[in-house]
Amino acid sequence: MFKSTGLIRRPEGVKGNIPFPYPANQLEEVAATLPAEYDTRLYGLVGTVKNQQECGSCWTFGTTVSMEGAVARANAGKFVTLSNQALVDCAWAIFQSRYGAHGCDGGSDTAAYHWIMDNGMPTQADYGDYLNKDGYCHIKNMTKLYTIKGFVDVVPNSVEALKVAVVNHGPLTVSVNVNELFNTTPTEFSMSKTGEYTIYIPSNPNALNHEVALVGYGEQDGETYWILKNSWGPEWGLDGYMHISSRNNVCGVATEPTYVVI
């Protein structure tokens, strides 16, 4: 598996246990009330940019961003940094097959969510710093665990649904397609190094291999762009973020977005 990614697609038929609360016939009406731009970072719902390094643990970073945002929303804006390493160490398929993750060899948002539902999520301060490798699960020693009721699948391929979800429930976890040669080939995703988002030819929106977080959206020249938080360190892209067009589901951002419910 190509490191610095690590997404293993969820098994077919696996869905969130909580329905998306906005009926299709109301989405356009709800979306029309939203601001032209929205950024969860401005409301204290997003932590610092992290670096997964060589470990294929993107699935822990995308989900942790969503989890941290939900915890902050539920606690009057009090932000708590949660432990990626706990997911790497503990949500293993070899131990409990229902989760389906493999530490630094990959995993999925659903694996992370189901593990958190069963066990709770420790803070980074309590569990320990990210190690860039598989470690021994010591979740039983934690003094504080944050639990969730479940997770929601946002309506796919809908700009309106993504906007509504990120404003009311974000940040979101999103899966994307990045080319394995992104370091040397100017693919849509790697071109974020220039800070540009005006790339309208999508890579395969169904060949998803990396998990990131959608933290907001903006508008430029009448076009909406998504603000994505990556896990490749603050030196990458726009201080660890990228702006990507909402047009044509570029890189698969809108294919299977999710968020947690506390």
Rank of each mutant, 00 (worst) to 15 (best):
V71D: 06
G216P: 04
E160M: 06
E54L: 08
N183A: 13
E188S: 11
A207I: 04
M117N: 01
V176F: 05
Y130L: 06
G6V: 10
Y99E: 09
T40L: 01
L27M: 15
N51A: 06
A24E: 10
D118E: 09
H138K: 14
P202Q: 12
T198E: 13
V176E: 02
C58I: 03
S231P: 09
L42N: 13
D153S: 07
V166I: 14
V215M: 02
V152N: 06
Y200Q: 08
N51W: 04
E235S: 11
F20R: 02
T48C: 03
Y241N: 07
T33E: 10
M67L: 08
D39P: 05
T173Y: 11
G56P: 12
M142W: 02
V176T: 08
I148Q: 00
S231F: 01
I94Y: 12
G47Q: 08
V215F: 00
A111V: 12
N75S: 13
E211K: 01
Y197C: 14
A93Q: 13
F182R: 05
N25S: 15
E219F: 01
Y113K: 07
D153L: 05
T33A: 05
H210K: 04
C58W: 01
K3G: 07
Q53R: 14
Q220W: 10
A76C: 02
P11A: 14
